Amino acid sequence: MADVLFCTDDFAARHSSRLQSIAPEVELVRLVGDDPVSDADLERITLAFFSHDSWPERAPNFFGVALRAANLRWLHTMSAGVDSPIFATFTDRGVRLTTSSGSSAEPIARTAMMYLLALSRDLPGMIRAQDRAEWNWHRWSEIGGRSIAVVGWGPIGREVARLASAFGMEPTIVRRRAHGGEPFPVRPLGELASIARDHDAMVVALPLTPDTEGIITSEVFDAIGPDGYFVNVGRGELVDQVALTAALVDGRLGGAGIDVTTPEPLPADDALWSAPNLIITPHNSGSTAETGQRADEAFLANLERWVAGADLRNEVAP
């Protein structure tokens, strides 16, 4: 029996010729707007691709269908992170799970550098002065020559370190252990507070696991200090958010740029919104058209491997 791929109508329209070339025997069941999928089509679905155009508005509809597809064998997601419980639901029932890991690394790393540049130039303060029509001259700081701890050595961490080095910063890789051949010095994740004390900035690009949840504590913020910067492009749950707010309000942390919070969306009355020297973006640092294109390409390459019976790339262990 031929495989049947569940995907969005947008993805199918973008890649109809590629799909026909790569997998001519694979049939499609399309998610058309928010229309329901028939029971007959639910039975037929064996493959599914959660594409970039599904997020965030169509995600509930997509996963609602995928969860009801009893014969689903393989799910590919455009996201690198699979810490959401929804993915465990699939792997627990034996569905193979692969990701487009790396597709968003470039824009996310550039966002991290944007935070560092903006904080070193007090961009939040300048924007407030502009809103008040105040000519508020002040001297900037430079990031060149400053040390940066890059916590996490996946595609995002590697791109952050590369860009930081290009800006004249001195990166240190923070991971569980050195593997050999790393392009910058390596220090172990278990020494996080000590590492923070030795560096001018810290960028966190870790996955969320039981071991990493809450790993960024008040001790880490105190170690970074009033002249240092903290950036989180991983997950909000990695950070003690109350401690982050207090460190900024008390002046114990020089500044922070965060793309992720707990919860999301961050409630309007959360004290973090009004903390000084803070830049918040709404978990969209990787949300570019090019990210979506790279995620599509990663899936199409894996689909070609699936049809050929070859090993899939970026498969998540059950």
Rank of each mutant, 00 (worst) to 15 (best):
A2S: 15
D3H: 11
T8D: 05
D10Y: 11
F11H: 00
A13V: 04
A13H: 06
R18Y: 04
R18I: 04
R18K: 15
Q20E: 15
S21W: 00
I22S: 01
A23S: 10
V26F: 05
V26H: 03
E27L: 12
G33F: 02
P36D: 09
D39K: 14
D41N: 10
E43D: 15
E43I: 10
I45M: 06
T46A: 13
L47P: 00
L47Q: 06
A48P: 00
F50T: 03
F50C: 09
S51C: 12
H52L: 13
D53F: 08
E57G: 07
R58G: 02
P60S: 02
L67K: 09
A69T: 01
N71K: 11
N71F: 08
R73I: 03
W74H: 01
H76G: 07
M78N: 14
A80Y: 03
A80L: 11
V82W: 02
S84R: 14
P85G: 05
F87G: 03
F87H: 04
T89V: 11
T89S: 14
F90P: 02
D92F: 05
D92M: 08
R93F: 12
V95D: 07
L97A: 11
L97K: 08
S100L: 09
S101E: 13
S103M: 05
A105W: 00
E106G: 00
P107C: 07
I108R: 00
A109R: 01
R110M: 13
A129T: 07
A129W: 02
Q130G: 13
R132D: 12
R132M: 14
R132I: 10
W135Q: 14
E142I: 06
G144T: 04
R146P: 01
R146I: 12
A149E: 05
V150Q: 02
V150L: 12
V150H: 07
P155Q: 09
R158S: 04
V160H: 01
V160R: 01
R162V: 07
A166K: 02
F167L: 03
E170K: 08
P171H: 07
P171C: 13
R175M: 12
R177F: 13
A178C: 09
H179F: 06
H179P: 00
G181K: 09
P183C: 08
L189D: 00
G190C: 09
E191I: 06
L192W: 01
D200F: 03
M202C: 10
V204I: 15
V204M: 13
L208C: 09
T209E: 07
P210T: 12
D211H: 12
S218G: 14
I224W: 04
G228N: 10
Y229I: 09
V231R: 04
V231A: 11
V233S: 06
G234L: 05
G236S: 05
E237P: 00
Q241P: 01
V242W: 04
T245P: 04
A246C: 06
A247M: 06
A247R: 00
D250L: 02
R252Y: 03
A256R: 00
A256E: 02
G257N: 06
D259Y: 01
W273N: 11
N277V: 05
N277L: 10
I280H: 02
N284A: 12
S285L: 06
S287D: 14
E290R: 15
T291L: 08
G292R: 04
Q293M: 15
D296F: 03
E297P: 07
A298H: 06
L303E: 00
W306L: 15
W306R: 11
A308H: 11
G309R: 02
D311E: 15
L312E: 14
L312M: 15
V316K: 10
